[in-house]
């Protein structure tokens, strides 16, 4: 690891000014991803500004909005009684990721900003357009079984690994970004940018801009929400694919609203907007779900080793939506 300077920020403004005008510097919160990447030589900051003591660990439910501070730990968010009751998809997504130890340290903002686990990105002896722009991507012809099938580019097929981001995506979350110029609010869907020819640029965050909080509105009355994740082992593994969904049925049992997001398949949580629009107003059935999801997945660009993800994400989503769309009297959701 390269030697680096360190300072603890006393205020949000202090933190932003310590980073903004200094290239090669980075914010440190829980450190569970950044410190690992520094050990691997992937991240080599000149200086760290420790923001972990800033007053950004709030978690409030007020006036129909939930607001989660950037430094609220993953464990705290997953255990929050209101999150568990009103937004089970969010608790479930967090509990399906990492380990108890990691969830105690990892922050909300750090979770959203964590880096891909593509093995080429993590191995500094290999080319990688995300880590070393222009050096190439060995994944297309190499090991890509765990990589993306939607929204990828010829430069990069890495996936965003966060489970929490997939759940926040169906909650229509926004993120607040603070800089010396002020604060802006960005939809989570617009926060992550398509890789194109510049996969090293992953979000709209400018250097020095600080993600201060995440917010989302209450779900409509009668909404059900769930997260389902497929892993290579039963616990403590990243998603092969995952699905977050929210379903609201009208009085006649038709789909009033449905939101679907996929993890493990794209450089961002992938909202299945085409399928959502197609399903609205229809009477739910496994056949309808399957047909609609297949249409959404026509845009997939899988490679030989990850072609299985197309059917896997379709089938798991069909099963999850079918569970959520059961008539209320016999609703029994299994995971």
């Amino acid at each position: 690891m390269k030697p680096f300077a360190y300072q603890r920020a006393d205020s949000i403004d202090d933190a932003i000014s310590a980073i903004a005008n200094h290239p090669g510097t980075a914010y440190l919160a829980g450190g569970t991803n950044l410190v690992d990447l520094m050990k691997l030589g992937v991240s080599r900051p000149r200086a760290l500004v420790d923001i972990s003591h800033l007053p950004l660990d709030h978690l409030t439910h007020r006036d129909g909005h939930t607001v989660i501070g950037a430094l609220a730990t993953n464990a705290t968010v997953a255990a929050d009684p209101v999150i568990r009751t009103d937004f089970p998809v969010l608790s479930e997504s967090i509990l399906a990721g990492a380990s108890g130890q990691l969830r105690n340290s990892a922050s909300t903002a750090g979770n959203l900003l964590q880096k891909t686990r593509c093995t080429y990105f993590q191995d500094v002896s290999k080319p990688c357009n995300k880590r070393a722009p222009g050096s190439g991507c060995p994944a297309r012809t190499g090991a890509h079984r765990d990589l993306g099938i939607l929204g990828v580019s010829t430069s990069c097929i890495a996936t965003q690994p966060s489970d929490m981001a997939v759940a926040l995506s169906v909650l229509d979350a926004t993120v607040s970004l603070r800089s010396a110029a002020g604060e802006r609010t960005v939809k989570l869907q617009d926060f992550y940018v398509a890789p194109g020819t510049t996969p090293h640029r992953e979000t709209v965050l400018e250097h020095g801009e600080l993600l201060t909080q995440v917010a989302f509105p209450a779900l409509p009355a009668g909404a059900t929400s769930r997260y389902r994740k497929v892993r290579d082992r039963w616990s403590y593994a990243f998603a092969v694919i995952s699905v977050a969904a929210v379903v609201v049925l009208d009085a006649h049992g038709r789909i009033e609203q449905v939101r679907i997001a996929w993890g493990g398949v794209a450089p961002r949580p992938w909202r299945a907007y085409l399928a959502e629009a197609e399903l609205r107003g229809r009477r739910p059935s496994p056949e309808l779900f399957e047909r609609t999801l297949r249409a959404e997945l026509r845009h997939a660009t899988p490679l030989p080793q990850n072609e299985f993800k197309v059917d896997l994400v379709k089938d798991v989503t069909t099963a999850l939506l079918t569970d959520l769309a059961h008539p209320a009297e016999d609703r029994k959701v299994t995971r």
Partner: peptide
């Protein structure tokens, strides 16, 4: 917590 991922200074 994992002490291997916690910088002592932090």
């Amino acid at each position: 917590a994992n002490s291997c991922l916690k910088l002592a200074v932090a």
